[in-house]
Write a protein that binds this DNA or RNA. Structure first.
Lengths: 188, 188
DNA sequence: GTCTATAGCTGGATAGAC
DNA sequence: GTCTATCCAGCTATAGAC
């Protein structure tokens, strides 16, 4: 793995764990085993490197989510597969985490990949739900966009509750709760 | 308002907007119009002052939530009242925000009020839901604990989606989505 | 209680040698 | 491409005067 790649991956990890404000160039360099000059040769500075790392994390999240959502089965099965994805619950969402960071939200450049990821996710979830309505697996009066937002929010909020509790339990409960609600309405 | 009080309130605001990592004693002092020595006279240091501010924010959040949840009406009406509380959506939740902060999660002392707040909220929501089941307003097979976690998570996750989008819209949608799901199952 | 001085450390970056 | 030296501002706190 070359230096530029190591820098990007290290930045992804540190942004995930400590956020933008809590991540220093020095920490990135140490984790990537790269020198000061090396980092500033490959990237213009902290925001430039962070942007590369955020874009990478966004791509990865989309690809992983698509595995669940683009698979076979009923709409409900695909949503459940998304909800039950393997997750490092206490670490939280590598992309959602960034939405909490003041410096990322203040910069349109840094915020854009985060914005796009969640727009894509809500749109993709809504497609699956609309598909379920079309196939009569879900009731006709279900609103795919609103429900998609709810599903995405339960996951992101589940992380918050889990981190507050230092336990995955509230996350699991929140997921189970929405699964049961969707299951209940699907039996017309 | 005395100096100690001004320091606490300023810290609450800054923790809300910038998190623990992003909040410096200097910024707190300037916002509180207090000098360096003044702050270190009233508090042992940044963690001590932050703890006081976090506890205050936790109390306030509980009190405000209780207004909605402890009011009259059916269980569903009380949950909806909680969901529709006036909120500064793009600013996020003053307590939930802290669950994202690595230094807060790493410290049992600082994390405790955050933990307690969400434990209380889930428990209180579950009580209201269980009440609705007992009164036959909600179906007997509804799981109050899981559903309570879902409701709390939708709100916290709604903030994440809204901040990512720089718009309250995804928050409103997520709330509407869960309201409609609860409404649908309540018509047995 | 509040003020100023001082301190050591880190953040984020530039410059120039190799 | 990578290394070391250097820079200035900010962070977090202590000390002692008033």
């Amino acid at each position: 793995m070359d230096t530029s790649e190591r820098l990007i991956r290290s930045t992804q990890e540190l942004l995930w764990d400590r956020g933008y404000v809590g991540t220093s160039p020095k920490a990135i360099q140490q984790r990537a085993q790269a020198g000061q000059g090396s980092m500033y040769h490959h990237f213009k500075g902290k925001p430039d490197l962070a942007l590369a790392a955020i874009r990478r994390s966004a791509e990865e999240l989309r690809a992983e989510s698509e595995v669940a959502l683009g698979g076979g089965g009923t709409a409900l099965e695909r949503i459940e597969k998304y909800l039950r994805r393997e997750r490092d619950v206490l670490r939280g969402c590598p992309v959602g985490r960034l939405a909490q960071d003041p410096d990322i939200i203040a910069s349109d450049d840094l915020r854009q990949p985060v914005h796009e990821t969640f727009d894509w996710l809500r749109h993709r979830l809504a497609e699956v739900l609309a598909d379920g309505v079309a196939r009569d697996e879900l009731p006709a009066d279900l609103d795919p966009e609103d429900t998609a937002a709810t599903v995405a929010a339960v996951v992101q909020g589940g992380y918050v509750l889990a981190r507050a509790a230092s336990s995955p339990e509230p996350f699991e409960r929140a997921i189970d709760g929405v699964r049961k609600l969707l299951g209940a309405i699907s039996q017309h």
